[in-house]
């Protein structure tokens, strides 16, 4: 699992440029699925056939990043945001372009919380000409991917949002026992820029039940938002986030399944942030939709933190839901 996690974490894929990470996931998914396809928007859909309920799981494979808007005469690179950049956490951190050029993201004013538009990237170039030889307007940058183990089960790095969800889906696809249910494991694109990929994927699949697997904020840290969710307290069953109110009968059913299968879980209400749950719930004539979340501290920073024990519970829960819902 750790080898797979490393591969998932260290392959970049900013929203709209998911091709590399998609190939990593495809080569793994093909081992266990009956069929794996890529749809026109770029979603990777792994199908495990069954005659029962159509259940769609979705984890997004895209990550937040930057695109280059302008290169000034000094060779400094101006950027726009792809997704919700935390500019406080982003300042003075290393970034890498899709072509492998390293740089540092810097605020224009040293002591103020910068807007994304006032961030620039310094790749060390002396002039516009030198910068343009390596980077073009329209190129993408991401924060340099990383993965480190802290004490116990804790890991830090990026982008756990949402490669850890991709890991949960791949492990569920691998470990799910025989079931009547018709299972779709979907690795979606462009979640970070408006929950876009899941919509056409759900339109194609027409699920009866849809479950998004994504990260959720934890409370209890000095800088954390108000949340009851804690690292190490198990997989989180989503009740609400800012994009969706989960179908309540599905929430109740998921809790029952968790209790029956002795899976450690916690209730989740996420006050800030949306998930693919919303897009799937309202596709076509709608479906029952919910979420399994991995508690994650410092989301959208370069050092997101998870507890691997929660990930194991999330995998168990995804399997149990796939088999028994």
């Amino acid at each position: 699992m750790t080898e797979l996690l490393k591969k998932l974490m260290l392959t970049s894929g900013v929203s709209g440029r998911e091709n590399k990470i998609r190939e990593v996931i495809r080569s793994e998914a093909e081992k266990y699925a009956d069929e794996v396809i890529t749809d026109p928007m770029g979603n990777l859909i792994a199908h495990k056939r069954g005659k029962g309920k159509r259940v769609m799981f979705a984890a997004h494979m895209d990550e937040i990043g930057y695109f280059v808007t302008f290169i000034d005469e000094k060779g400094l690179i101006r950027v726009g945001a792809v997704g919700g950049i935390n500019t406080l956490a982003a300042s003075y951190c290393d970034v890498i372009s899709e072509n492998g050029v390293y740089g540092i993201a810097l605020p224009t004013e040293a002591n103020e919380l910068p807007k994304v538009e006032s961030l620039y990237i310094d790749i060390g170039a002396k002039s516009r000409k030198q910068a343009e030889a390596r980077v073009k307007v329209g190129d993408y940058f991401v924060h340099v991917p990383r993965l480190k183990r802290l004490s116990g089960n804790k890991y830090v790095g990026r982008p756990f949002d949402d490669r850890i969800g991709c890991l949960v889906l791949l492990e569920a696809l691998k470990n799910v026992k025989d079931t009547d249910n018709d299972l779709y494991f979907v690795f979606t694109v462009q979640e970070e820029v408006g929950l876009r990929g899941a919509k056409p994927a759900a339109y194609r699949i027409e699920p009866d039940i849809a479950i998004a697997v994504d990260v959720t904020s934890v409370g209890g840290k000095p800088t954390s938002p108000k949340s009851k969710v804690k690292l190490g307290d198990g997989a989180a069953i989503k009740i609400k986030d800012s994009s969706v109110i989960c179908s309540y009968e599905l929430v109740c059913r998921m809790r029952e399944i968790a209790v029956d299968s002795k899976i450690k879980y916690q209730d989740e209400i996420l006050l800030k942030g949306g998930t693919d749950t919303a897009s799937m719930q309202t596709s076509k004539a709608g479906c029952l939709a919910g979420g399994i979340s991995i508690p994650t501290a410092y989301i959208h920073s370069v050092n997101e933190m998870i507890d691997m024990s929660d990930v194991k519970e999330a995998i168990k829960l995804a399997c149990a839901v796939a088999e028994r819902i």
């Binding site: 109110i245 309202t282 004539a285 709608g286």
Partner: peptide, 12 residues
């Protein structure tokens, strides 16, 4: 909370 319900009905 997002005006989705009616459009799902309209779709059907």
């Amino acid at each position: 909370t997002g005006k989705c319900g009616a459009s799902l009905c309209a779709y059907s």
